[in-house]
């Protein structure tokens, strides 16, 4: 028999076909699905495969290891484990309690210190910046140096300019 995989099942019928397989479909839905199966090769093939899988898995169900049964003492073992867990938690909490308290105190102190520092930093940031006198380079001009943009007016100024340039070179 040729296997035709070219026609998949109609997506809108897949859930209905699963119910139809399980015998869970009744009334109008069952009629509609049955009629559709007669007219749609893809759905018919998919449904036949699904029915075959039920037979296959039925054989599997009878052979495969289904879940082991809980031992008669299982529930008591669970309760015993719960009690052990609770005891362990209580002992653990007791041993570590002093360290935990100390750690919390350190954390509180550190948080307070950080808050103080931040407050100080923010307050400092908001203070207007101090006025810093910015000297205009023009004002720094040596009173004895003639204005370099102006031509020397007399011999004295020439001599002073020569003297200035001599200073600069040294």
């Amino acid at each position: 028999m040729e296997t035709d995989f070219s026609d998949p099942a109609c997506p809108e019928y897949e859930a209905l076909l699963e119910d139809y397989l399980d015998g869970e479909l009744g009334g109008a839905d069952a009629k509609k699905t049955g009629a559709h199966l007669e007219s749609c090769a893809g759905c018919r093939r998919a449904f036949d495969d699904a029915a075959a899988s039920v037979r296959l898995l039925r054989v599997a169900g009878s052979l495969l290891d289904s879940a082991p049964a809980p031992s008669p003492a299982f529930a008591r073992m669970v309760m015993s484990r719960i009690r052990n867990e609770e005891e362990r938690a209580a002992v653990g909490a007791g041993l570590w309690q002093p360290f935990v308290s100390l750690a919390w105190r350190f954390a509180a102190t550190a948080t307070l210190a950080l808050a103080v520092l931040l407050t100080y930093a923010v307050a400092g940031f908001r203070r207007p910046p101090a006025e810093i006198a910015v000297l205009n380079p023009a004002e720094m001009q040596d009173i004895f140096s003639p204005d370099p943009t102006r031509a020397p007016a007399d011999r004295d100024e020439v001599l002073m300019m020569v003297g200035e340039s001599g200073h600069a070179s040294h």
Binding site: M1, E14, A15, L17, L21, A46, A50, A52, S53, L56
Partner: peptide, 26 residues
């Protein structure tokens, strides 16, 4: 539904490659 299709597809592919008939018939 799709998982059922996949297990049968795999199953038939093995059967089909043997040249044997498909026992789990449609």
């Amino acid at each position: 539904f799709r998982a059922r299709g996949r297990i049968m597809e795999s199953y038939r592919r093995r059967l089909g490659s043997s040249g044997a008939g498909v026992g789990v018939e449609r």
